[in-house]
């Protein structure tokens, strides 16, 4: 069959060389489909072109024919590279599709509502570094007696990470009725996550709970960064940490629980490592920088405090975040 195609191609070329008419050119364009039907590759097309010319111009110089051999060789490799490129694009499209699905799962499953309280001002902000965030913020509250928050950082991507977040939400929602204390919440979520995730995936999570009665903030941490407590009376910061293993590493982890009392003007800043490990051209920022920023806005509303930290640390890295950036502020007292 290719022989037949060769013959037809030669006739077409010959006709075009003689007429140079639009019609014959169009015939050639249409004929390209025949190559595809017969599964003739681009380099074979050049081979066919070469042999057609050899019959039409038998006296052409030898070097002229060598140039075609060069072109044929080049086209073979061009074809291979093109194939590889196309398969990579296909793969990327598949990945993007997975990410889109995961993003949807994340957005629909994990909506959270900021509690509205009369004596506690709450502000928060979470900005993903990429399409999908590994940070997860979730509030629980009855709007009168208590307000809880989970600040979590899931290591891992895509659908598994989104599923992990839904596990956290599931665990927390289930315990809401019992009004459980932070170390119990972490213990339960750890058991759920540990049974379900793959080996190199884990979650760091801070869980804090504010109770109106006594203005007590109790907290536990599963391998999460310490949070900062600002004391208005002394104008100082205290690091709040509590011992506890990352979620999902082993089933029988125990979580230490601590508590502090919040006075008027005090606030707690809970952050993920995208905030505390902000990277600038000169390296990592000093912890003191965050405290300095917090101090300048200590009298503002909780939301203004969160926004300012993002604004200023974001600026330092030209808003090219290396990691997801999340901050939650619980502030005791008046609202602006």
């Amino acid at each position: 069959m290719p022989k037949e195609v060769e013959k037809q191609y030669k006739a077409l070329v010959n006709r075009y060389i003689n007429t140079k008419s639009e019609n014959d050119l169009y015939a050639g364009q249409k004929f390209s489909r025949r190559f595809i039907e017969k599964e003739i590759s681009p380099e074979e097309v050049i081979g066919i072109h070469k042999s057609a010319l050899m019959e039409l111009f038998p006296d052409a110089p030898e070097d002229f024919w060598h140039s075609f051999d060069f072109l044929i060789e080049m086209m073979i490799h061009y074809g291979l590279a093109l194939q590889e490129h196309q398969s990579l694009i296909r793969k990327q499209e598949e990945l993007e599709l997975e990410m889109k699905i995961a993003e949807k799962v994340q957005n629909t499953l994990l909506k959270t509502r900021v509690p509205t309280f009369s004596d506690l001002d709450i502000g928060f902000l979470t900005v993903p570094a990429k399409q999908m965030s590994g940070d997860y913020i979730y509030f629980l509250s009855d709007d009168s007696n208590y307000a809880s928050v989970a600040v979590a950082d899931v290591i891992g991507k895509g659908i598994p990470a989104a599923l992990c977040m839904s596990m956290i939400k599931f665990g927390m929602d289930n315990m809401q009725k019992q009004n459980s204390s932070p170390h119990v919440v972490l213990d339960v979520v750890n058991r759920i996550v540990e049974e379900s995730v793959d080996d190199s995936m884990f979650i760091s999570m801070f869980y804090g709970k504010y109770e109106v009665d006594g203005s007590v903030f109790s907290y536990a941490s599963a391998g999460h960064e310490p949070v900062l407590l600002y004391k208005a009376a002394s104008n100082t910061f205290i690091e709040l940490d509590a011992k506890g293993l990352l979620l999902g590493v082993q089933p029988n982890a125990t979580y230490e629980e601590r508590s502090v009392v919040l006075d008027e003007g005090d606030f707690i800043a809970m952050m993920t490592d995208g905030v505390t490990e902000t990277r600038t051209e000169d390296g990592f920022i000093d912890d003191e920088i965050i405290k300095e920023i917090l101090t300048t806005v200590k009298d503002e509303s909780a939301q203004k405090i969160a926004d300012t930290v993002y604004q200023q640390l974001g600026e330092m890295q030209n808003f090219h975040l290396h990691d997801d950036f999340s901050i939650v502020i619980f502030k005791k007292g008046y609202k602006n």
Partner: peptide
């Protein structure tokens, strides 16, 4: 070591 790196150690430890 960032958190992804930490994940490698956790995975190795578990295995």
């Amino acid at each position: 070591i960032d958190s992804t790196g930490l994940g490698v150690f956790v995975g190795f430890y578990k295995t």
